[in-house]
Design a protein around this nucleic acid. Sequence first.
DNA 1: TAACAAACGTTATATTATAACAATGATAAA
DNA 2: TTTATCATTGTTATAATATAACGTTTGTTA
Lengths: 130, 130
Amino acid sequence: MAQAQTLSRNQQIVLDIIEKAKGPLKAYSILFNVQKKGINAPQQIYRALDKLIEMGKIHKIESKNAFVACRSSDCEISKATAFSICESCEMVDEISDTKLSKYISSFNHKKGMKFKRFNLEFFGLCKKCK
Amino acid sequence: MAQAQTLSRNQQIVLDIIEKAKGPLKAYSILFNVQKKGINAPQQIYRALDKLIEMGKIHKIESKNAFVACRSSDCEISKATAFSICESCEMVDEISDTKLSKYISSFNHKKGMKFKRFNLEFFGLCKKCK
DNA sequence: TAACAAACGTTATATTATAACAATGATAAA
DNA sequence: TTTATCATTGTTATAATATAACGTTTGTTA
Ligand SMILES: [Zn+2]
Ligand SMILES: [Zn+2]
Ligand SMILES: [Zn+2]
Ligand SMILES: [Zn+2]
């Protein structure tokens, strides 16, 4: 379990926006949303995003270059992440399924590689869109 | 099983480069490599890449924005892809494991989403790097 | 208080990807 | 063969995503 971490000003601002959002946010869309708070440069966003990812507060959806808040709390600082992504409405939902996660984590690659982390992205149509 | 498809000139050029490569290639690195063949613009690369992905000839490694040739032939036109990625040397290896693939494909999301496709990326250290 | 690390602000630039439009080539029906 | 249709190409321009580099400020600890 990760210990509680205090967030810096910029980290908190960025996290707040991501947590309030209904879906994944892109870095530059976050930037436009925080300009009134005195954040003006991409670097400031990307630095906060990097730290928030390290802390496990958010995840990057690699296939969309977008960021979501972690809603799962048992994804062990992003060591085992899984998402379901609607190809129509772009909704992203974090999958928190112990059995699935355990199964994948225990997968052993024949070629002698030792895994530290995985990321799984499912694509399809959500309830509303199908 | 996908039927044999004939590739256009640019598609063949791009595929050749990706198949010869030892590791994942980035779009602009492909571009620099084919300028002697008369391909000069990113669009030409990205268009070929798109088609090759559709055909299942190559895959995009989302976490690296890079492309690898499909070595598996049973990934059913990219409906079920899995890769092992070394965080040190950037080696990428396509995982072709029927059991793993079946298990993940049969996963049913509680929230009623019907999955059409998944992509799984493992990260760690390869044999050489650990 | 000195030393160190983390976070910040800023400017510039690198990297990845798409828009838009005209021209060409291949396929197949009429 | 002509005409229609569709995929592919070439080209210019621009959008979107991300990092480098530098100096300053702030917070923590010795
Ligand atoms: Zn999570
Ligand atoms: Zn949807
Ligand atoms: Zn494959
Ligand atoms: Zn390695």
